[in-house]
Structures are given as structure tokens and as C-alpha cells.
Computed example of a mutant assay.
Amino acid sequence: MDDVSQISEFGKILIFLITGIILVGLLFVTNRFLAPNNPNYEKQTSYECGEEPTGSAWLPFNSRFYVIALVFLLFDVEMVFVFPWATVFGNREIIQLDERWGWVSLIEMFVFLGILILGLAYVWRKGDLDWIKPTVVLPRTDALVPQSLYEKLNLEQSSFKVKEFSMEATIAIKEPAPVSSSEATAIKKPMFKPTFKKPANDA
């Protein structure tokens, strides 16, 4: 009687995943108990490639870095597909069995690289790889005044003399008018005379 495997292929994958999770957890627990824990100021500062960090690490981050990182990942994953292709294309035994394998793999790699190059050209043409640069926008108006009139006005204004700048204060302070002795001694009378009512006597 033939032995039948009691575990399916998916069961083997599940056992592999559970074993990996347990081993990673054991490594973290072992690191927690055995690794030295001596935090200080130097260890808790943000890493700046060996330079002294200045300012706060919470700064606005340019989104263009994210696009460049995506392009890097695109071509990084491309190399993962190029390595197995190179092993097939460089295998003489496979090509000796059938010469069409070499041509098929070569055409397939050209198609693959062509798709990636088209994607890169699209991103480049769209301007996503360019850094943020201010675009110069010349102002335009619908005025009917000719340009020669503006130039003439500018020439006339250039003949005006500009007052030289001085650091000294030029604010004129008005002195108070002199007060005569008669005005100083005169006492103004009130404009109204107060009157007081006597309270009525109760009989």
C-alpha cells in the first residue's frame, strides 16, 4: 500500500510560516534579555550620516523624494527579473537542446526592458523627475497702450532727481507758542452757573 502524504502543499507552507514567526519571536526575546540597554543622549539622537543633527527632525518633506524612491524600486526590481533571465540565456545546455530558447529569451528581455524604458520616458516627459523650479510667467495685459509710450515714460522718469538718503532724522518738531503772563494768570469762568434746590421742610 502506497504511503499517502497527510499534509497538503498549503499545510507545508503554513508550517513554514509558523516556524519562521516563532524563530523571529525567539530572536527578539533573546535580544531583549541579552543585549545591553544603556540609553544616552548620543544614542537617542537622530542619525545624520555621522554629522551633528541640527534643528528638529519633524520637518516638511518634499514629495519628489517619494517619486524618486519609486523609480529606484522599479529598476531595483527589474534586476531581480534580469538575473534568472541571464542564467537561462547563458545556459549552453538549454540552447543546445533548442536554439530557439536563446532567441525567445533575448526578444523577451528586449520587450521587458522596452516597457520599463517607455514608463521612464513617460515619467521624464511629464516632469516628475524634475526638481521644483519656479516657472517664470511674464505678465500679460489686454491694454491698448503701445509699448513705445511706456518706454518714453520710463525715459522721462529717469531724468528726475532722487533725494539722497540720509541717516539723520528729518522730522520737524514744532515748538510750542509762547504764552504771555496775562493769559497764564487769567482764570476762565465756567460757562454755566450751578443752582441748588433747597429741600422742602416737612410740616
Rank of each mutant, 00 (worst) to 15 (best):
14 L>A: 08
14 L>F: 06
15 I>W: 01
16 F>Q: 13
17 L>F: 01
17 L>D: 00
18 I>H: 00
19 T>I: 01
20 G>R: 02
23 L>A: 04
24 V>P: 00
24 V>E: 01
24 V>R: 01
25 G>W: 01
26 L>Q: 10
29 V>G: 06
29 V>P: 02
30 T>L: 15
30 T>C: 13
31 N>G: 11
31 N>V: 06
35 A>G: 09
35 A>W: 11
37 N>T: 03
37 N>R: 03
37 N>E: 12
38 N>A: 12
38 N>V: 06
39 P>R: 03
39 P>K: 04
40 N>G: 01
41 Y>R: 12
42 E>Y: 07
42 E>F: 05
44 Q>N: 11
46 S>K: 09
47 Y>F: 04
48 E>Y: 11
48 E>G: 07
48 E>L: 13
50 G>R: 12
51 E>P: 00
52 E>G: 04
54 T>P: 01
58 W>S: 12
58 W>F: 06
59 L>V: 14
60 P>Q: 07
60 P>D: 13
61 F>R: 14
61 F>N: 08
61 F>D: 13
61 F>T: 15
62 N>R: 09
62 N>G: 00
64 R>P: 02
65 F>H: 12
68 I>H: 10
70 L>I: 08
72 F>V: 06
75 F>N: 09
76 D>F: 15
77 V>D: 00
77 V>Y: 01
79 M>E: 05
81 F>R: 15
81 F>Y: 15
82 V>R: 09
84 P>N: 03
84 P>K: 00
86 A>G: 06
86 A>M: 10
88 V>T: 03
88 V>R: 02
89 F>G: 05
90 G>C: 07
91 N>L: 05
94 I>M: 11
96 Q>L: 11
98 D>Y: 12
98 D>P: 05
99 E>H: 13
100 R>T: 15
103 W>P: 09
104 V>C: 02
107 I>V: 14
108 E>N: 04
111 V>M: 01
111 V>A: 00
112 F>D: 08
112 F>R: 09
113 L>G: 13
115 I>M: 09
116 L>F: 02
116 L>Y: 01
117 I>Y: 08
118 L>R: 07
118 L>C: 11
119 G>A: 11
119 G>R: 10
119 G>P: 03
120 L>F: 09
120 L>Q: 05
123 V>W: 04
124 W>Q: 10
124 W>R: 13
125 R>V: 13
126 K>A: 10
